[in-house]
Design a protein around this nucleic acid. Structure first.
Lengths: 149, 149
DNA sequence: CTGCAATTGAAAATGGTTATCAAAATCATC
DNA sequence: GATGATTTTGATAACCATTTTCAATTGCAG
């Protein structure tokens, strides 16, 4: 049992929820993918090895994982919600390639500090934040053509 | 004729598009509102004084205004697209109250610089960016209850 | 085991946004 | 002004990601 599966069990037990084959399977595929996935992408991945899991269950389980702190919900400019596995590491932001969809993560302490300073100046109490830089990744800068997003 | 109406005329003429009562009216109400509006909010505002303008036209016109540089499209975490009138001022970011929906704008040169530095380090060519701080505005910090977003 | 609450899957519903299309409006040209 | 090609409009249907519904199934405490 990986750390993630363990963490899910603990969460489910604590909430009086049930452990199911579907939930374990979805988490497993999700963690293995190791990248940002939309509900549909995950559904299709799971379908490859298990056709007995429904679309709605994938959506429901992703929400559940987000609640358990095992997944983070990200909504970028294309309007599709994506989830990323992120057990409990620190906050990070994203560089998003508008051509190939590639997502690069980064952390920057200085920017975070400046954000808090801005909030303070406006007497605003920050709960979460979101910083996204849209543009072309290295590989796409040399290519020609339309952007994807 | 305000500056915005003038600007729209010039844009329409330049693109071989037509000037219509609806477009002028929508722009006028939009600019007068002086705040971030969703298509639906704008539609309802317009309906108060002119019931002959359709829903679809409001959507189409907002897209048009965005193309003309008269409106900026913003998509926050609630999934609803909002537009803000912004003739040609510089880029700015947002503080968004998760309780009352209030939106405060801010600019911060230092953060922008750091963003470019991060991008450079990742050999990423930035096209646009988005920085949003979600939390409680001053007025909402003292209130109790559920958040709206 | 048993029983009941939680969960599932398939399908329908939802909600914001966009496409369709016939009718109406715009505008360059006469 | 009138004409006519082209654009725009409004009502409605379609779209599409996501959520809800609900009967059937499953997990698990007792």
């Amino acid at each position: 049992m990986h750390k993630a599966t363990e963490q899910l069990s603990v969460y489910l037990a604590g909430q009086g929820l049930k452990s199911t084959r579907q939930r374990d399977r979805i988490l497993d595929v999700f963690v293995s993918a190791g990248r940002h996935l939309s509900a549909e992408e995950l559904y299709l991945l799971i379908r490859k090895t298990d056709r007995r899991i429904g679309y709605a269950t994938v959506y429901r389980t992703l929400k559940l994982l987000a609640g358990a702190g095992l997944a983070h919900e990200r909504r970028f400019e294309d309007g599709i919600t994506r989830f990323e596995y992120d057990a409990a590491e620190g906050h990070h932001d994203h560089l998003i390639c508008t051509r190939c969809g590639r997502i690069i993560e980064f952390e920057n302490e200085q920017i975070e500090d400046l954000q808090l300073r801005v909030a303070k100046k406006n007497r605003f109490q920050v709960q979460t934040h979101k910083l996204e830089l849209y543009g072309l990744c290295e590989g796409c800068q040399s290519k020609k053509g339309k952007t994807e997003l």
